[in-house]
Design a protein around this nucleic acid. Structure first.
Lengths: 123, 123
DNA sequence: GGCACCTGTCAAAGATTTCTGACACATCTC
DNA sequence: GAGATGTGTCAGAAATCTTTGACAGGTGCC
C-alpha cells in the first residue's frame, strides 16, 4: 500500500497545500478533475475559465502535490496535458498545525546564507 | 460531548478554514495559542507583531472557528481578551474537497436554477 | 494629573494574488 | 496556405490581502 502523509507534514508543505486549496476556483478544479481527468483546454471550457488563468491554478495545485499533469500524445498526434487528482490525505488539527508552524522557513528572505530572520524586538 | 465536523464541511466553511490556515503568521499564532492561551497585547509582544495586525489575523481565525476569544476582566479591573484554540479537526481528501466545492456559494457565476449568489445574511 | 497598561477602530500605504489579452510554438484537416 | 485544435509564456491591469501608524476609548497606580 502506498504511503500517505502519516502525521507531520513540514510547515512549507502544509502551507502550500492549504493556500492552494483555500481558493474557490481551485477547489472546483479539484472537484472537476476528480470526476474525470481532463486536459487543460477542455477543462478550461468546462468550468468557464481562461486558459492562462487555469494554467496558473493548475501549477499551484501541482506544486502542492494535489494534482499531477502528464503530457500525453493522442492518436491524432496532438499533445494534451492531462491532469489527475492525487490521493492526498491531510489531517488538520491544532497539534498538527502547531508542529508544522515550528518548521516554517522564514518567508522573507533577508540574507543569502545566514537564513536569519531580520525581525528585531523593538521597544 | 461536542461534535466535531465528521465528514462533510460546507464549502464556505472549509474555504474559510483553509484560507485562514494558509498563512504562515496565522499558523504561528495557532501554535503560540496552543502552547498557552494569551491575550492580544501579550501575544503581539510574544511573536513580534503589531496589535492592529494581530487583531486582524485573530479575527480571521475566529471567523473560521479555529480560535475563540473571550473578554475577561481581571481583579485589577483591566479587561483582556484571551484567545483559545478550539479543538478543530478537519480531514483533507479529494472527495471531501469535491463535496465542499459543490456547496460553494460564491463566485461571479451567472446563475443556475435557484441561483442566487449572495453574501451571507449578516446577523 | 500623568503614566502604563488594556481594548478597539480607521485610512492609507505596501505586497501578493488573481485575471486578461496578447504572443510564441506545434500538429492535423481542408 | 488558412483554420481548427492543442501546448506554453509574458506583461500589465485589477482585485485582494497584508502591514503600518494614528486615533478613539477604558482601567488602575504613583
Amino acid at each position: 500500500m502506498p504511503e500517505v502523509p502519516p502525521e507531520a507534514p513540514t510547515g512549507d508543505e502544509l502551507l502550500r497545500v492549504l493556500s492552494a486549496l483555500g481558493n474557490p476556483h481551485r477547489m472546483r478544479i479539484v472537484a472537476a478533475l476528480l470526476e474525470s481527468r481532463n486536459y487543460v483546454s477542455a477543462l478550461a471550457r468546462l468550468i468557464g475559465m481562461g486558459r492562462p488563468l487555469l494554467h496558473m491554478h493548475l501549477q499551484r495545485l501541482e506544486a502542492a502535490g494535489l494534482v499531477v499533469g502528464t503530457l500525453e500524445v493522442g492518436e491524432d498526434g496532438k499533445s494534451m496535458k492531462y491532469y489527475d487528482v492525487t490521493p492526498f490525505c491531510y489531517e488538520l488539527t491544532p497539534r498538527i498545525v502547531a508542529q508544522a508552524a515550528a518548521t516554517l522557513t522564514e518567508t522573507t528572505e533577508p540574507d543569502r546564507a545566514t537564513g536569519r530572520a531580520a525581525k528585531e524586538e523593538a521597544k
